[in-house]
Simulated assay, not measured.
Amino acid sequence: MMKLGLPNWQKISCNTNKADCVAVYELEKKKLKNLLKNVNKKSVLSFVHIPPPRRGVETSDAIFKCIKEWGIENKIFTISVDNASNNDVAIRLLKDTFSMSKNLVCAGKLFHVRCCAHILNLMVQDGLSQIVDITNNIRKSVEFVNRSDGRLLLFADIVQQLRLPGRKLIYDCRTRWNSTFEMLSCAIKFKEVFPRFRDREPHYDCCPLEEDWVKVVKVCNILETFWATTQIISCSDYPISNLFLQEIKRVKLVLDSGVNDEDDFIRAMVRKMKTKFDKYCGECNLLMAVAAILDPRQKLKAVEFCLSQLFPPNEVQENISKVRIVIFELYDEYVAANDHDQLGKRKMSQVGDSSMDALISSSTSGWNDFDDFLRQSETFEPQKSELVDYLEKGV
């Protein structure tokens, strides 16, 4: 076929085809590697299959091999992973490896960050497990109605009779809890429709009971905060790390209020979720706090406000002090790195100095006596750092 369309065409072998593809890959990899040396970039660098047993040491080796291959071992600021014990081991090993070459900022205090979205998912799954049978009934109901055009029309007729807004039920993806929440929230709007639909459709046998809807409504009222927080944390259109601390605080307040709910069912569910929250968020997340401080609308006020609601009164000041220490350590390290770069540039600029230039800039300059005179005759207030100046100004 190719010969007919293009007589000069020559068939190539599979090996040639493979070699061409690999050559394109290596060329693009080289371009990306050069970009990573100079700019911030978001890219997937590698997919790695780790055969079982997937212990922490194998995960650590795989990550470090990738980092080393791309030449960014001096650029790693922090690593975020799911909350699994083998990941904890992997991060500890990586931290030890990087610490040997002193490549970690703040001595590694900001190195390991737990995945917020994963923590929220674990808590929500605990909540949804309390209504798993009801959720399955609602899911079956949605599937039953949407399975044929006749049922859809019947359902829509009942919706119209009741003058309810909207006419369509939505499916969920079982592996995504926020999708399940959206399905439940949508179904709640039509809770009065399902029993009427059952009266008209003899094969419909999974209609939720009235008390089931009461539970679903209460659960969704709690999960709505988790859903909104996940939408913010999982957003990638613009930087949003400065908002994380406020969102975690909001989740904490919802759980605290639910612990004392008058409904035994809700109280038991929230306590289970709060246990998970305390396990993973019981310590002050320093990186979240630093990100909030660097938002000029928040600064330290946001840390003081949020930590006062996240921790018991006797722990608040201690955690605020930890945050202050870390942000000043971070600032000092950046200042030192900048001074080092400026010193290197000055040395490079002096390489071409003539002997006369070197003579003028030497210690024999007449300005040295004047400098000594100034130091003895004038007193200078210590100059504030940019960080102190930033924090002292209002938000």
Rank of each mutant, 00 (worst) to 15 (best):
C14W: 05
F64R: 10
T364M: 12
V113Y: 07
F77N: 10
D82Q: 00
L35N: 12
L184M: 08
F370S: 07
D369F: 10
A84W: 00
G56H: 10
K301S: 13
E381T: 11
F197Y: 15
I79M: 12
F226N: 02
F190S: 01
G394K: 00
D256K: 15
D149G: 12
K345P: 06
D369C: 07
D278S: 13
L359S: 13
F380I: 12
C173F: 06
Q125M: 13
L36N: 07
V105W: 04
N74C: 06
D357H: 14
S13D: 04
V193P: 09
V251F: 09
S99Y: 10
R346F: 03
T379R: 11
D341N: 03
N146W: 10
T229L: 03
A291I: 09
L310A: 00
A156D: 13
Y238C: 11
I79R: 02
N74T: 03
V251H: 06
V57H: 15
M1E: 13
I119H: 08
L32G: 07
P195C: 12
G56W: 08
F311K: 05
S99K: 15
V48D: 05
L93A: 14
G344I: 05
C220G: 00
C173A: 10
I91D: 07
T230M: 04
V24E: 15
L307M: 14
Q130D: 12
E26D: 15
D371M: 06
R267S: 00
I233E: 04
K68L: 09
L300S: 07
I325W: 07
L391R: 02
F111S: 09
D172F: 05
N242Y: 10
Q350S: 08
T16S: 08
N83E: 08
G56F: 09
P53E: 15
